[in-house]
Each structure stands twice: as structure tokens, then as C-alpha cells.
Simulated scan of single mutants.
Amino acid sequence: MNYIVNPNGVIPAPHPVESIILDDGVPRPEPVETAKPARRKVRTAPRTSRLNPVQLARRVEVGEQRRAKSRSKLMQAAYRLFAVHGAEAPTIDDVIAEAKVARGTFYNHFKSRDELFRAVGNDVSFAINSVISGAIDEMEDPIERIILAFRLFIRFAVSDAARGWILLRTMPLAGPLNAGAKEFIAAEFEAAFGTGRLREMPMAVAIDMGLGMQIMTIHRVLVEKVGNDHIDLAAGEMAVALGLDPAEARTLASIPIEEDDARAAAAQAYSFPVEKG
């Protein structure tokens, strides 16, 4: 048994202690901490769903439909805002307000404003390129195909101002925007160089020249309201810059385009409906 010494005598300690001596020479007890009993962890069985496989599949399907709908609302809102503001690209707050969704919904789909713009631009570009590929499929001369594709792309782009401004915003960020368009352009330029009528240069340089001329021509048409003659002139000079004989370039760039067909194709060059409000 342990004992405690104090001025009144020696008494038993109520529990194990260690004595300490202070400056007055009188020992003082120091309680020894005892270990606390460990708490038992109560394990609960994982909650299982009461839905059968068909119900679970339906829930997933509904969730995907809602996600697709909210993404479409954001893209349509961006499109409408470009139609109203043109070169003044909308902010994320503008898009959220126009789409009538929460900020969290925006970030569930897009990491940034530019990512949203690229998605809309990719959608528009894919639709336009689909129309163009059908228009040039039967042409045998790859250089003639490139020149006509250049002219049609710009005409379709500027036939709707919102479409033109979206492409102006996104093409400098991502070039032709989608993988299909990149493959299409690369194949056409490779075939064109194979004719021996263009001067030798790296493929990337040739593509950059063509896309750069497209971007600047779209901008000039939207801002200065120049007509199709300017588009055709730009197409011819682009071909000359690639090394084509000037006379041949200007002849190919002036081949008439059926305006009725062009307008009909342009009207189809929307990949999603733009709802009002």
C-alpha cells in the first residue's frame, strides 16, 4: 500500500501515486493516470438499394437525360448571347442567367468559359463541315476541293452572325475544332501537294495559312459587311500563297456557287436547335 505524508501524519493513499516534493519539503501525491477502456466500434451493414435492376437502369437513364438537357441549355444560352452581343463574348454569369441554371450546374459540365465556347464551336463546325464534305465529294481535283471548301465554310459561318462570332472565338483556340475536321483538312492538303502544283512547305504551315485566312475573312465579313466577292478573292489569294498559279487560282475561286443550294445548306448547319427564352 502507498502512503502519503502530510503535516497531520501518515495516511494511506486511495490509489497508486508517485510522490513529489515541493520547495517546502513536504511530499505531494501525483496521481498516476490509468488507461481508459477502448470504445467498441459498432459496425453497421451497408445499406442496400431496394430497386431492382430495371429500376436502377431507369434511374441512370433519367440522370443522363437531365445532364444532357442542362448541358444543352448552357450551350444554347451561349449561342443566343453571341447572337445578341457579337464580339463581346458573354461571361459565365451571363450564360448562367440566360440558361436559368445554378452556378454549380455550369461547373458540372464545363471547367471554364472557353471550354463552353469550344464545345459550341465544335458543334457548329462539325455541322458545317458535314455539309461541305457532301458538296465536294464528287470533285476529283483536291485543290479545287480545298478552294470550294474555303469559300463554303466562310459563307455558312457568316450566314448567321452568332455562328460566325462563335467560330471566331473558338477557331484561334482549337483550329478546325474537332478531330474529324482536322483529319479531313490534313487529307485534302496532302492530296493537293501530291498534284505538284503547289510549292513545297511543311503541312502545318499550309494548314495555318488556310485557317488564318479563313478567320480573318470571317471577321472582315462580320465587321465590314463585305460580300461574297471578297470571300472568293480571299480564297484565290490563299491558293496563290500556297504556290498555285495565280490565273488558275482565281479561276477556281470564281466558279459559281448555286446560292439557293448554299442558303439551304447553311440553314441545315445547326447541330442543335436554338430555343427562344
Rank of each mutant, 00 (worst) to 15 (best):
M1Y: 01
M1C: 03
M1Q: 07
M1T: 09
N2D: 12
V5T: 01
P7G: 07
N8V: 03
G9A: 07
G9M: 05
V10H: 00
I11A: 02
I11E: 05
P12A: 02
P12R: 04
H15S: 04
V17G: 02
I21N: 15
I21S: 11
I21P: 14
D24M: 13
G25Y: 12
G25M: 14
V26S: 14
T34R: 11
T34N: 12
K36G: 06
A38F: 14
A38Q: 15
R39D: 15
R39S: 11
V42W: 11
P46D: 11
R50E: 01
L51D: 05
L51E: 14
Q55H: 00
L56I: 15
R59W: 05
V60C: 13
E61D: 13
E64A: 14
E64L: 10
S70T: 15
K73I: 04
R80P: 13
L81Y: 03
F82P: 01
A83H: 13
A83Y: 05
D94A: 07
I96D: 03
A97G: 10
E98V: 13
E98Y: 13
K100E: 09
G104K: 10
T105F: 03
S112D: 13
R113Q: 00
E115Q: 06
L116S: 01
V120C: 03
G121H: 06
S125F: 04
I128H: 00
I128R: 00
N129D: 07
S130F: 04
S130T: 08
V131S: 03
V131H: 02
V131G: 00
S133W: 03
G134A: 04
D137P: 00
D137C: 02
E140M: 04
D141T: 03
I143P: 03
R151Y: 12
R151P: 05
L152D: 03
F153G: 08
S159C: 10
D160C: 02
A162D: 08
A162L: 13
G164S: 10
I166P: 06
L167D: 11
L168K: 12
L168R: 13
R169W: 09
T170M: 14
M171L: 14
P172H: 10
P172W: 08
G175L: 12
P176F: 07
L177T: 06
A179N: 07
F184V: 05
A186M: 13
A187R: 10
E188N: 02
E190A: 14
F193L: 05
G194S: 09
G196F: 05
L198E: 00
L198S: 00
P202S: 05
A204T: 15
V205C: 15
G210A: 14
L211M: 14
M216V: 10
I218N: 00
R220K: 14
R220W: 02
R220A: 09
L222C: 12
E224T: 08
N228R: 15
I231E: 02
L233N: 05
A234H: 10
A235K: 10
E237L: 13
A239Q: 03
V240L: 08
T251G: 12
P256Y: 05
P256G: 06
E258T: 09
D261H: 10
D261V: 08
A265P: 01
A265M: 01
A266F: 02
A267I: 01
S271P: 04
S271L: 07
F272S: 15
F272V: 06
K276N: 11
G277E: 09
